[in-house]
Design a protein around this nucleic acid. Structure first.
Lengths: 250, 250
DNA sequence: CTAGAACTGTGTATCACTTACACAAAACCG
DNA sequence: CGGTTTTGTGTAAGTGATACACAGTTCTAG
């Protein structure tokens, strides 16, 4: 079922070198990926069909399959390219906490720029040049901070996952608000209201108290606070790493 | 496009009360959801089609649409039920760190039990009874620890996201290994080998060094260490929270 | 310099899936 | 007991991915 992992990587890294035999290909993987990303940015992953992509490029649907084994592989390529360049620090690491924070913010921005990328099934550890560049960018400051190998990997994946998930929530909520016909104001209180209605104080005491104090309005629904929430979490992780490293030095 | 949010919640909470007019429904949302979960557990989300679900139940495809507005809604219900019951602590919170750790482990287990649930598009903040029960279970110890409202929400979502993402990685990797025809041994070194081949030391110095030391073999591909990675991240968050709370008391 | 091999773009066709729509039988209400 | 509501069903439409074969193009071997 799954494609040969070797071919998969070559597509990601080399764009699948073409042999020198037949007619010159008129398309490139680059063109295809770029156009596909544009479509997905505009209309989401659902808006991206091979037929539409081909039409947009001025070719037939099946021609695309000369460049890409299947839609899944195409999406994988899109994903890697859409990641773009991570923030690049050079030379000595000055402030590893700062570098990580910048990294988080930039990654967050990438996700917001390409919301569809959050919808893609991740199918394994990062393997493309784009994904790995982001990995590298986070590894650098953390390695300098003094983490061991396995701790490095753990931390980066942990952070990536958190950013990803928070971004997912952000676009889900803002997306739902945008397309619903209720006013923003209504949407603000809507979630909280329904919670109040359904949530049983016996079974959900902490939650009930929280909703009662309006603690959900801020970050639960308005969506304005999600990046702040992310910031808070990241700060805690960094604090935790610091105290962990400090404890190790004794 | 989106369904009325009100109906959506009623389906999740009440199972959509039936009126007393027409013929008695022979099916229940419960049966449907249970069977659907069984199918998805066995063959994944792709294996779950309305036709197959109906066949398994002994009814026609279209009959299902009397109980569920569409497949998406069904999946949402499945998701909420598959979550099951979170670990339930009662009375005073004794050790909030411990409660959180148990919570994380149990959540991790849920994801492994229902791998398909990681593939589902989350479409907003947790709203069903199952999801909210998990939310409550994490809120409780954290509230006791002394976090403010917005910090509570931030922390829980942050942790949920991290667990989710790590679980996703886990099942992706173990799944890929299971269905590939290479031996486990080969798969172990496979990822690392390809990395070595493609990764440019100039562009990815830290990564290269890491791979060179074999730092990826442990957690990157074998999959044996992912839960350990998660543990490490969670510990750091808890450490961070502790030092944050300690700093506030002064 | 030429024959054939390799490769490209295309048209057709298939298969799987969700879901709209209309209908007949069933159960309840007044 | 007539009418209304609701259920299960059959049919069919629409969409999307992709297998397969064909015709034209370009390179390479001899």
């Amino acid at each position: 079922m799954t494609t040969d992992p070797r071919k998969r990587l070559e597509l990601l890294w080399n764009g699948a070198q073409r042999p020198s035999r037949g007619p010159k290909p008129k398309l490139t993987l680059d063109q295809i990926a770029t156009t596909a990303i544009a479509i997905a940015d505009a209309d989401g992953l659902d808006g991206l069909s091979m037929q539409r992509l081909a039409a947009e490029l001025g070719y037939t649907t099946m021609s695309l399959y000369r460049y890409v084994p299947g839609k899944d592989q195409l999406v994988e390529v899109m994903l890697d390219r859409a990641a773009g360049d991570p923030p690049r620090f050079t030379g000595e690491v000055r402030d590893w906490r700062d570098e990580i924070q910048v990294w988080v913010r930039e990654l967050w921005a990438v996700y917001l720029r390409h919301p569809w990328s959050l919808r893609v099934q991740v199918s394994g550890p990062p393997s493309g040049p784009g994904q790995l560049a982001w990995f590298e960018a986070a590894l650098r400051p953390l390695a300098h901070a003094g983490l061991a190998d396995d701790e490095l990997v753990a931390t980066v994946m942990f952070l990536m996952g958190a950013v990803r998930q928070m971004a997912l929530l952000e676009i889900d909520i803002s997306g739902a608000r945008a397309q619903s016909n209720v006013t923003t104001e209504e949407a603000q209180t809507g979630y909280e209201t329904t919670l109040r209605e359904f949530v049983d104080p016996q079974r959900f005491p902490t939650l009930t108290a929280l909703v009662g104090r309006g603690g959900f309005a801020a970050s639960g629904d308005s969506g304005e606070g999600i990046d702040l929430d992310l910031d808070f979490g990241v700060q805690r992780v960094l604090d935790g790493l610091e105290s962990y490293l400090a404890a190790q030095q004794n």
